[in-house]
Design a binder for these strands. Structure first.
Lengths: 337, 337
DNA sequence: ATGAAAGCGCTAACAA
DNA sequence: TTGTTAGCGCTTTCAT
């Protein structure tokens, strides 16, 4: 009989009211008598009625759905951010659709599908400057950048305070007594890479240490690029005393290369990374690193996005969240002596 | 003027046809004159018209959206499966909504939101037996299990051939010359855990080796539980010659404990894991493991789900995909001599 | 091959 | 406080 899902009208019929009254009840309107409300709620329960989200979206002109696009889903950093964003979205009655777009072409297709076809109300973009993807973004549509600040444009953003994180990392190495410090960065197109390098240089300068161009190596975030860096310096016969790697994976590569070269860490080589990935404490030796609170970055980004969806005139914030120094055994803790 | 998004009727007006003809064009119906089609397409281009997905869902009674629910998004295994599933879904004109539900309560709420409110056409459930969540699944709704086979129920599933993977792992250890082999499992509530243990026991039995209960340790997938296992055996004074861990993280914990105990790997202790996580080759020593093709598992699962959405009477398959032995330096390769 | 009419399940505006 | 009337933008009959 009522094999097809019950609609608002079935409920209305059973409760002996108009469908509009049912709508009022499920939307928590106050303009309903307690007695009527009860009757309607009983009917809802009896029929097992649930509002159809699609019909609501249709009538309201909004989907209550957010999307988060990142280069991939498998990178722990991205996944953690997404988890945080999802949590915040759900706490506010929104669903989060997380999608990965490897390159700008895939990104464009995705944006077309999500925004062009009105499937979502807002967009979270992780690493918008990974390639040319940021040029494919729609205007006049709520967007928040994650992990990069908008260059010139009026786009809200949330990212790590990359400059400060790098300064703290380098100051830690200096405090340990390391002087000849090398730097391994991610691809120089990304904001965080540029900012971390700037922070690195500032800290060095503040300590009165000249920058050695040879000790800068542009990696690609992979462990193997970290390994390549140290091996290259070894081959040139100019090994640094310590390395600041822009992420833990590259730092792990450095640790690996150090083992191949027979270098003792942290005595002969200090190593510090960024992220604090889950297994950092299981590396050999456990890795000193600058911890990012990624779920929080995700939460703040979602919060900002929701704010802009509800109020397009909300101020455009560019948040920078702090990193935390976690000292393990890949750097001497001489500063404590 | 046309500030609000153009609709199918705006296009119709401009092209001088009925809105229905426009609908035919965007749905690639053949019942349209080439000439008419051209006029309509020109109007679509001129107005920048894009069909509204919500309205389509409304009229068609389907969302073209799938959801994948996993315990979390940050586990590399899950994320890889999701990436594969997303790829397959998108290739078929569907969007994939991936969500995490830490516990059964969160799972229930999510299912209610996604299925109860008709936001998706089908569900992919990663690790349905992680807790009681499988009891909260709707009946008469397309569902595919990933990483576990349905117990009794008629639910399609895709998982690793866990038994065979375990057998191959143990046979490799035996071929290396190890005899006293220990086993560290995940929580015994999950299917893959039970199957891998069964495969482990079979391989041992086939080799005529008696099973030592003391060398079974139930871990929780974390590196620290792997470490705990080896440390416990050491304390009891009954160290095994080799360890088969049910995932790479626990194997990493074993490697770590071996270092603490001063055991040389692979000479004094052989270690093999399952998964082949990204950094396995950067462990010390690089880890021998049973590689899972997780993106493929995700793709097959999505394929199965779409099949059941389009044809509810499709046969209920329970696919088992093979693992691949990857020999690195945490096991002797004596078999080659 | 094309158009007209109805309806998907809901909300919003107005009337009673 | 409650009910009535219109849509939201599309697809699906059924005519023509």
């Amino acid at each position: 009989m009522s094999s097809p899902r019950p609609t608002i009208r079935d409920v209305a019929r059973l409760a002996g009211v108009s469908h509009q009254t049912v709508s009022r009840v499920i939307n928590r309107s106050t303009d309903v008598t307690a007695e009527t409300r009860e009757r309607v709620e009983a009917a809802i329960l009896e029929l097992g009625y649930r509002p159809n989200a699609i019909a609501r979206s249709m009538a309201r002109g909004e989907t209550r759905m957010l999307a988060c696009i990142s280069p991939n889903l498998t990178d722990f950093t991205f996944a953690s951010i997404i988890e945080g964003a999802e949590q915040e979205a759900r706490a506010n009655g929104y669903l989060l659709l997380s999608s990965s777009a490897e390159d700008a072409a895939a990104f464009g297709a995705l944006v077309e599908e999500l925004v062009g076809h009105r499937r979502v109300d807002g967009l979270l973009i992780i690493n918008p400057f990974a390639d040319e993807r940021h040029t494919l973004l729609p205007s006049n549509f709520p967007v928040v950048f994650v992990g990069a600040h908008a260059r010139g444009g009026p786009t809200p953003s949330v990212s790590l305070d990359d400059e400060e994180a790098a300064r703290v990392a380098v100051r830690h190495l200096l405090a340990c007594g390391y002087r000849r410090i090398a730097h391994i960065s991610g691809p120089l197109v990304e904001d965080c890479v540029i900012d971390r390098r700037a922070g690195f240089l500032q800290a060095l300068e503040q300590a009165g240490i000249a920058f050695e161009q040879a000790w800068f190596y542009q990696g690609d975030w992979s462990a193997s690029s970290g390994r390549d860096a140290l091996l290259a310096w070894a081959q040139q016969g100019r090994l640094p005393e310590a390395v600041f790697a822009q992420n833990d994976r590259m730092a792990l590569g450095v640790l690996h290369a150090a083992r191949e070269l027979g270098l003792r860490v942290p005595e002969q080589l200090g190593v510090i990374g960024v992220d604090d990935m889950p297994l950092s404490s299981y590396f050999d030796p456990p890795l000193t690193t600058m911890r990012q609170d990624m779920p929080r970055i995700g939460r703040e980004a979602a919060r900002l996005l929701l704010e802009h969806i509800h109020n397009p005139c909300a101020p455009v914030l560019n948040m920078k969240l702090p990193a935390e120094l976690v000292v393990r055994q890949s750097t001497c803790s001489r500063e404590r002596r």
